[in-house]
C-alpha cells in the first residue's frame, strides 16, 4: 500500500490532528506561564531602581537562552527524579517543552508589557492595547516552536509527520507529506496573522480618529 494512499492518509490524519492539538496545548501552557512571569517582570522593570535593573537583566538572559537547549536542560535536570517536599516528581514531555518556551514567552510579554505601559503613560490607550495582538502573535510563534518537542519524544504534529515519513521510500513522496504538514501548520498561522493585521489596522484607525478628535477638541472649547 502506498503510504500516501487514501487508506494510509485516513490513518495518518487523525493522528496528525491529535498531534497538532498537542502543539496548541503546549503553546497555551507556555503563553499562560509566560504571561504570569512576563507581567511580573514588566511591572518590576517599570517600578525601576535595583529591582528594575535586575528584572531587565533577567529578561536579557531569558531572551538569549535558546529554547532547544533549555528544553534539553529541563529534560535532563528537572524532569528527572527531582525532590519536591520530600516526594519525587517528573515533568511530562509536554510540560518540559512548554516550560522550555517560557523564557521566550516571558521575555516577549515583559518587553511588550513595558511598551504598552509606556504608551498608556503617554496617553495612548489604544497603542497600549496593541499588547493583546502582540500576545496573540507570540502564541502562534509558540505553536510553531513547540515542534521542538519531536526531539524528546513528544508526539506532536511534526513528530507524527516524521514518523510517517520514515515509511516513504522516495524523496518526492516525503516532500508531498511535508507539504501537507506545512499547509496544516501554515493555514491557521497565516489566518491568525491576517486577523491580527486586521485588528491592528482597526485599532490604528480608531487611534487616528481619536487623535483627530483630541486635536479638534481644543478648537471647539
Amino acid at each position: 500500500m502506498n503510504p500516501l494512499s487514501i487508506p494510509a492518509l485516513s490513518d495518518f490524519l487523525p493522528l496528525f490532528l491529535a498531534g497538532m492539538a498537542v502543539n496548541f496545548e503546549i503553546a497555551a501552557i507556555a503563553i499562560a506561564l509566560g504571561l504570569l512571569l512576563g507581567v511580573l517582570l514588566a511591572a518590576t522593570r517599570v517600578y525601576g531602581g535595583f529591582p528594575g535593573i535586575a528584572a531587565a537583566s533577567l529578561v536579557a538572559l531569558m531572551r538569549a537562552a535558546p529554547t532547544f537547549v533549555v528544553m534539553f536542560f529541563l529534560l535532563n535536570t528537572m524532569s528527572r527524579e527531582a525532590s519536591a517536599s520530600g516526594g519525587q516528581f517528573a515533568f511530562s514531555g509536554i510540560m518540559t517543552v512548554a516550560l522550555s518556551l517560557v523564557p521566550y514567552a516571558g521575555a516577549y510579554v515583559a518587553d511588550s508589557g513595558v511598551d504598552a505601559f509606556q504608551q498608556l503613560r503617554r496617553g495612548s490607550p489604544l497603542a497600549g492595547l496593541l499588547f493583546l495582538p502582540n500576545i496573540a502573535r507570540a502564541f502562534f510563534v509558540l505553536v510553531m516552536s513547540s515542534s521542538a518537542g519531536a526531539a524528546i519524544g513528544v508526539t506532536e504534529g511534526i513528530a507524527v509527520i516524521l514518523h510517517q515519513a520514515e515509511y516513504l521510500p522516495s524523496l518526492a513522496d516525503k516532500l508531498v507529506l511535508f507539504t501537507v504538514g506545512i499547509a496544516f501548520f501554515g493555514v491557521p498561522l497565516q489566518v491568525g496573522f491576517a486577523l491580527l493585521t486586521l485588528i491592528q489596522r482597526r485599532l490604528g484607525r480608531i487611534a487616528t480618529r481619536n487623535q483627530e478628535v483630541l486635536v479638534e477638541a481644543p478648537r471647539v472649547t
Partner: peptide, 16 residues
C-alpha cells in the same frame, strides 16, 4: 511557505 513551516520541519526537509 518558509514562514508556515516549523523550523524542525524546515531542517528535516533541507536534510532530506
Amino acid at each position: 511557505t518558509l514562514q508556515s513551516s516549523p523550523i524542525v520541519l524546515t531542517l528535516v526537509i533541507a536534510a532530506a
